[in-house]
Amino acid sequence: MAERLSNREGIKGMANPTRYGIERFAYWVQRLTGLGLLAYLIGHIYETSTIVNGKIAWNQMLELTQTPQGHILLTLVIGMCVFHTANGIRVMLGHGGIGVGKPGQPEYPYKAASLNYKQRLCIWVSIALAALAMMYGASVLFGD
């Protein structure tokens, strides 16, 4: 009710990556990969904690993860990890005011200096690095 009255977009609007260029897309993927990595971390702690139940329990858990589905999941984790790191470095530098351009007299059509080609290039490089890492990871995981 309150949200309707305040006309806030809510999580649906926050998570919509389609309207404001690649920077908003990168923001959305950064959040998504952050949540994905958090879920992986929790799962990973659960997985490795089975070792305290002895060698048999540990081997059973390993069998569960050494499946095509497990390999796909790990390939995704590799991609998430690489994108989150590379794009995170871009965002952290931006947060320090580095690479966001210099203030000046705005001129029509008012292209924002902070959304410059360096920022966009870094986002594309992050995507490319994630794709390459996923391909390499998949070749190792599925190669045997």
């Binding site: 923001y27 005011g97 966001v100 008012y110 924002a112 920022q119």
Partner: peptide, 27 residues
């Protein structure tokens, strides 16, 4: 602010709020 840059995308006067915020945070 997480530097999504959407504010600067829609600004009709070239104010570039995203830049101002990052420069302020850098300061």
């Amino acid at each position: 602010c997480h530097f999504a840059g959407s504010c600067s995308h829609v600004c009709p006067k070239g104010v570039d709020p995203a830049m101002a915020i990052q420069l302020l945070r850098g300061y």
